[in-house]
Design a protein around this nucleic acid. Sequence first.
DNA 1: ATGCCTTGTCGCACAAGA
Length: 260
Amino acid sequence: MRIATWNINGVKARIASLLTWLRTAEPDIVCLQEIKTVDEGFPRLEIESLGYNVATHGQKGFNGVAILSKHPIEDVSRGLPGDPDDPQARYIEAVVPAGERIVRVGGLYLPNGNPIGGDKFAYKLAWLDRLEAHARALLALEEPLVLCGDFNIIPEAEDAKTPAAWVNDALFQPESRRAWRRLLALGLTDAVRAVHPQAGVYTFWDYQAGAWQKDNGIRIDHLLLSPSAADRLVDAGVDRTPRGWEKPSDHTPAWVELDL
DNA sequence: ATGCCTTGTCGCACAAGA
C-alpha cells in the first residue's frame, strides 16, 4: 500500500501532470493540497477514470484538500476539529480498507503563517495546537494512521539547503518546530526522515531565482505514522520527477509504502 | 532591501503563497 502526499498548487492548472503522475507512480492513496477550487470544480471524472475514488474538501480560490484512493473511501470527515468557525478548507480524513486491515488517512494543509508575529502566525500556531489534540485522539484508536500533507514546517536545519535564509520565516520558527516535535513526542514517526536520515531531502523549491536548478529546496511535506503504521513501514521517499516537468507545482510528492 | 514566479479572481491589478 503506497500512500503519497502532494501539494499541487491548483488542481485545474495541474490536471494533466496529475493524471500523468497517477498513471506512472500508481499510488494507492493520494492526499492533495491546494486544490484551489470548490468541490464542484474538481476534475473528478478524469481521476475516477483512472480507477480512483475521490473525496474533496474544497474552497473557492485558495486552500482545499482531497483524498484519492484506489480502495473505497469510508467515514470521510472534513475540517480539523477544535474550531467549527474556521472557514479555511485545510483538513480531510477518511478510513480506507486494505485487505484484512484498515488505514486511517488524514490529509492536511497547514497554514503558512507568514509574516511572523501577525494574525497569520497566530492562526498557524493555533492550528498546530488543534492538530496535536486531534492526533492524540486518533492515536488512542491504535489504528494504522498516516497524517500527511504540506505541514509548512522545516523541522531541522538539514531540511533546508540554505537554513540561514529561513530564520525569519514562519516555516522555521522555534514555535513551529517545537509544535512539530510535540507531534513526534506523541509517538508519531516522520517516515521520510526514518528512511532517509541524511540532509538534502527536499519537497519544495521556490519558483523564483532558479531555486530548482540550484536545488535550493526545503522539506516541508511530511508523512507521520502511528506506531502500528510505523511497524509496517517498508519504504518512503520523495519523487522529484514532477518538479522537473513543464508548468510544475512548486512542491513534489512524498510517499510511504506500508505492508498492510 | 526588494523582487524574482505562479495561481485564481465577478481580473484588466491584486492577494497569497513559502
